[in-house]
Design a protein around this nucleic acid. Sequence first.
DNA 1: CGTCCCACCTGCATGC
DNA 2: TGCATGCAGGTGGGAC
Length: 273
Amino acid sequence: MPELPEVETVRRALAKEIVGKTIKEICIFYPKIIEDVEQFKQCMLNETIHSVDRRGKYLLIVLKHWTIVSHLRMSGKYFITDTNQVYSKHVHVMWTFHEGSILQYEDVRKFGRFIVLSNKDVIPYFEHKKLGVEPYFDTFSIERFKKDLQKKHQMIKVVLLNQHVVAGLGNIYVDEVLYQSRIHPMRVASDLNESEVEQLHYHIISIIQAAIQAGGTTIRDYSSLGEQGNYQTKLCVYGQTGKACLFCGHTIEKIIVGQRGTHICSHCQRMTN
DNA sequence: CGTCCCACCTGCATGC
DNA sequence: TGCATGCAGGTGGGAC
């Protein structure tokens, strides 16, 4: 699933379902995805969900004293059910609330992770990770972005996938942003000119915003909590290999950049001018 | 610090 | 059908 728009969509749905509820029981079927299983159980039992927040692609389930950091990685999903029947054979964690409903965490590939932090350690945790700013107008400064990119002698796609400069972009939205900005993913970040950086900045903010409004992108997917997104119908380049470029009609190609499948129009996105 | 490569897992599409 | 291969919306670690 999850880049920022999908995680944000899950966050909103999860918040509606679980905020104010109190945890009665926790069943863990696959402990490896949890950093400290004992602490995870103890800190949640009989505690009330205060809020569900998000930082980049991380979900934050906030209790009175503790925060559960949940990263969905490639295939993590949440479901709400009204019985304690497991939703699928890939459900690894299940929470029962005193109020009745059940929260289930499913993760086919088992890449997702849970970490418990005391509330005061949440901000330092992300600082230590060097997690970049949220890609919103009021948090993502163009001046700062220009300075950060000048320091990066890496391919721009690699810089945007790495969460240090700006948080939340993944393979889909990076391809979409670079395409709309007419920038080749293998261009070196520090070589981009001022107007190219401005294009990038604008498209990062607007594509992320549009995708959140659409409820995220749903590909090869069942409906995870909150995830009936329809941004997949708005994708212009990701997954469009062999189709015509919307701008010039040239065929969309798939290449490898930084070990990731990458979709481009090689006519609109040039390495050289 | 940047760049590769690999690891973590399972399921699905493709090709023989 | 069976089997091998490659691919998938992510991150973190080790080696050079």
